[in-house]
């Protein structure tokens, strides 16, 4: 009887949590609007020893910027890496629950196809040690595109889209490593755009950059929003407030609150969110 009671309370907790994290808005009801949906997602590192994500329920809208915020080690980057299955590369990492991309279970999608549709930009700018042109051509070439004209068009278009074209158009054959940090990060974004993905995942893309480069990247994100769904992980609450449409707040592997950005920062529903926003901890 006691066990039964325990189960009951567990179920209640789950329902309770999802009330805070699944939005009851009109645009979330139409499944065609939703890029990613997570239901009861748990993630374990080190062969089940470390429980890093606990019962995550969240929907990500298409063509919107969704920001993940929270203190270090709260699992926001981990969840981000679930979306393009980069966690598969880590030994002893196990994901349970349903993650759906465009209504399809991501475990049933070919990893390579998924990663062409879901691009990722990393924390440290990490261009390949090759020329700027080859950096951008890398992804398309891996997909078997060999036509030089097509590749040149892709290079030009993605550099223009990432607001880098004017700065590097005269030295496309210079090494990608010869650019400044901010330029390198925009090159990484251009490299991702070159795959013409639907979703761009950004894992703290500005944490290694100075304020001016950060500003450029933020402007770029506002531009990119028109074409792509963007999920951005950030430590910087002001940044989340400036650029995102929706904000999700994580703590200790739990998704505490998910709401429209303005609403979230103006009227946090959860005590922990309020404490974090007002800077009482973290």
């Amino acid at each position: 009887m006691i066990e039964f009671e325990n189960e009951q309370t567990n179920v209640e907790q789950k329902v309770d949590n999802s009330a805070n994290t699944l939005l009851d808005k009109e645009e979330f009801k139409n499944p065609e609007n939703i890029a990613f949906s997570c239901r009861n997602v748990d993630l374990y590192y080190d062969y089940g020893e470390k429980h890093s994500l606990k019962n995550i329920n969240i929907d990500i809208l298409k063509n919107k910027v969704t920001a993940f915020i929270g203190p270090s080690g709260c699992g926001k980057s981990t969840l981000l890496r679930c979306f393009d299955r980069m966690n598969d590369l880590i030994d002893g990492c196990k994901v349970t629950g349903d993650i759906k991309y465009m209504g399809q279970d991501i475990n049933e999608i070919n990893t390579i196809y998924l990663r062409t549709k879901v691009g990722m930009v990393f924390q440290q700018p990490n261009p390949f040690p090759m020329s700027i042109r080859n950096n951008i051509c890398y992804g398309p070439r891996c997909q078997g595109i060999k036509n030089k004209d097509t590749l040149n068009k892709i290079v030009e278009q993605s550099l223009k889209d990432s607001a880098l074209y004017d700065e590097v158009s005269d030295r496309l054959d210079a090494s990608g490593l010869s650019l400044s940090g901010g330029q390198q990060q925009r090159l990484c974004i251009a490299r991702t755009i070159a795959m013409s993905p639907d979703v761009i995942l950004m894992d703290e893309p500005t944490s290694a950059l100075d304020p001016i480069a950060t500003l450029k990247i933020e402007e770029l994100i506002k531009e990119l929003k028109k074409k792509y769904t963007i999920i951005i992980v950030t430590h910087n609450m002001q940044q989340a407030a400036r650029i995102s449409d929706y904000t999700a707040f994580f703590m200790l592997g739990e998704l505490v609150e998910f709401n429209e950005t303005e609403e979230f920062f103006a009227h946090p529903r959860d005590k922990r969110s309020e404490d974090y926003i007002t800077g009482r901890f973290g």
Binding site: F128, P129, Q143, T192
Partner: peptide, 14 residues
Amino acid sequence: PKSLTQASLALGAS
């Protein structure tokens, strides 16, 4: 650096 191989994999390379 691991970041290079990760970048390549994230770009859809096998």
